[in-house]
Design a protein around this nucleic acid. Structure first.
Lengths: 245, 245
DNA sequence: GGACCTCCTTGATGCAGATCAACCGATTGG
DNA sequence: CCAATCGGTTGATCTGCATCAAGGAGGTCC
């Protein structure tokens, strides 16, 4: 059986899409090339409002986007974090269920939704690949639910840092020998929205982890991790969460 | 294009599966019939432990099952609630990511995973239907994240009751005229695990909602809802959450 | 240079929900 | 029949995080 998890290099995209499956020879890539286009967004720009029609699906090429949900009185919860190579979109759905916002300058590689869906309808393994990706997201969402429902503020911060570290590692970035280091792509407020905390608590807990030697800071955004196991322990994850290295 | 959202009556199952798409004539149903079987579980029995191999996928026929995640020190978070007609399983995955437990006596209609996956690989619309269902679950998980991260205990309880009421309504149950009523299929402790609270807080908030006339109780498990809008307001949901009626 | 951002940190105080504990009613079982 | 267990309620107290508030570091604009 063909391995659907192989990423595909998409034309001149600087990243490998995870959306589609590389069959070594097919014309599917050609068909994808025909319906693809690029879009840029400025930092802070909302890409889609909850309830809007979604005209495209696609992958993040560079930059960061967030999925957020907001209550009437302004309470906000982040429900998705999109880093480069992440897929956005809901094939088969007409409207977005959440706000999608570019938190940095952002480039996306988009496919018009209709032809993408037609492609999907005729090529089973594309639908299967998307199913796998959606199941991955669901797993991540459920980990996130444990974090939101049961973890302490300190554990939440430690979890967030290790999640980002894991993502970075998966993309083969900054494999500095020994001393792992991570750029936090979020402001304190965005971290708070991610973790179900206030920005003050985020700041305090980061300071506390620093004081206790679990992490060290270089500027506000750059984190060094002298001992990953220690960080994972602080995160309260099961030991097998350390599939990072 | 064929409507994939149509449920299918599956042989002698008392419910309609949402897992598979009814094409009016095909042999897919026959192929499903060939690989299907029933399994029963006792209340309290764990169906699958996190990390176990999963040999089947299937639908809940009767009873309630939960997906839960547990930390080393015993803190527990429910991450999924499976009511009759809900689908369980992760085609393409070999191991379960969470504990699956029958909280009541339970009957499931199962399909052996391998042949089910083969069926999926050759029939694009089955994969598409599964993708849609998984996207539904993902949406639900993200609503749940807002609940866990940002809602107060009172809002959480009100949300839970309205979610169950909505589910009941979707299955065309107990459409008592005017005065809506709901059976809570969970103990206070299970509700607490669902909502990221303690069982004491759950009990207190239910009492408070009762005292304030938002709900009334008949026994411990049976809830009457005199005014659904009021309940939805208490839940802090956007007004469009009331697609119930 | 100074005014004004945005992002972040730290302190003081308050409160929602956790924790600890007692008790109730309904079952179950010897 | 009484002991034991399970699910639930309610009270008293404690605490982790939110809230309110002040101020600092860096960047940009005039």
């Amino acid at each position: 059986m063909h391995d659907h998890s192989v990423h595909v290099q998409c034309g001149d995209c600087p990243i490998r899409h995870r959306a589609v499956c590389a069959r070594c020879d097919t014309d599917e890539l050609q068909r994808l090339e025909q319906i693809k286009y690029y879009r840029s967004f400025q930092a802070g720009q909302t890409i889609i409002w909850s309830g809007d029609r979604m005209e495209f699906v696609g992958s993040v090429v560079s930059g960061i986007a967030t999925l957020t949900q907001t209550m009437e009185d302004g309470r906000r919860q982040m429900v998705g974090l999109l880093l480069p190579s992440d897929f956005v979109g809901r094939p088969g759905r007409s409207t977005a269920a959440f706000d999608v916002t570019a938190t940095t300058d952002l480039v996306m590689c988009c496919f018009r939704k209709k032809p993408f869906e037609e492609l999907m309808a005729t090529t089973p393994h594309v639908a299967q690949r998307l199913l796998e990706m959606t199941l991955d997201e669901l797993d991540a969402a459920r980990e996130w639910m444990l974090l939101l429902g049961r973890k302490t503020a300190r554990e939440k911060i430690a979890s967030l840092i290790s999640i980002i570290a894991r993502r970075d590692a998966a993309l083969h970035l900054r494999r500095a020998s020994g001393n792992l280091s991570v750029d936090l792509p979020l402001t304190r407020e965005e971290m708070a929205d991610y973790l179900g905390l206030t920005l003050e608590t985020v700041s305090r807990q980061i300071s506390a982890l620093k004081k206790d030697g679990v992490i060290s800071l270089e500027g506000n955004r750059h984190v060094q991790i002298p001992n990953l196991d220690r960080l994972l322990e602080e995160a309260g994850d099961d030991s097998d969460g350390g599939m990072l290295v």
